[in-house]
Computed example of a mutant assay.
Amino acid sequence: MTDAISSVLSQIRSYQAQMASLQGAAGAAGPAAPGAAPAATGLGASPAVAAPSFGEALGNAIRKVNTLQAQTRELQAAFERGDPRADLARVMVAAQASSVAFRATVEVRNRLVQAYQDVMNMPL
């Protein structure tokens, strides 16, 4: 369990580092387009970066899970063919990773459905 938590924390940190590098690249890209809002300045302010909408973020996550599952199927097929680059350990790790990603996606979906039902059942 501790390894799973450490893995999730390391992924979060890598995403934060990626976002920081993207924000740095957006700030160093040059002058803003005419009519664009000025970038925030000052202590603790970061340049304005257009964040993806919730629908886009959810769609990207689903596509990522689908890609992970497709890669796992390809690795399993390569192992069955006897490809020396597809050893059993890699196949098992890929299968577990895609399984965890799918279960996490299903859990997010369940929570979204529950939140929707809670909102719809609120008294006016």
Rank of each mutant, 00 (worst) to 15 (best):
D3V: 03
A4Q: 11
I5T: 11
S10M: 13
S10C: 11
Q11P: 01
I12C: 10
R13K: 13
Y15M: 06
Y15C: 02
A17H: 12
S21K: 07
Q23N: 12
Q23S: 13
G24C: 07
G24N: 12
A25T: 03
G27M: 15
G27W: 15
A28T: 01
A28Q: 02
A29F: 03
G30S: 03
A32M: 13
P34I: 03
P34E: 03
G35P: 01
G35D: 01
A36Y: 11
A36N: 06
P38G: 08
A40F: 14
T41D: 09
T41W: 07
T41I: 07
L43A: 04
G44P: 02
A48D: 05
V49L: 03
A50C: 05
A51P: 04
A51D: 05
P52W: 00
P52S: 02
S53Y: 04
E56Y: 06
N60C: 01
I62F: 10
K64E: 12
T67P: 07
T67E: 15
Q71S: 11
E80C: 04
R81V: 04
G82T: 02
D83Q: 07
D83F: 03
R85C: 06
A86D: 05
D87I: 04
A89E: 14
A89F: 15
R90Y: 13
V91N: 06
V91T: 07
V91M: 12
V93Y: 12
A95R: 15
A97G: 04
A97S: 09
S98E: 09
S98M: 12
S98R: 07
S99W: 15
S99H: 14
A101E: 12
R103W: 05
A104R: 15
T105H: 03
T105W: 06
L112F: 01
Q114T: 10
Q114N: 12
A115M: 06
V119D: 05
M120W: 02
M120L: 03
N121I: 00
M122G: 01
P123D: 01
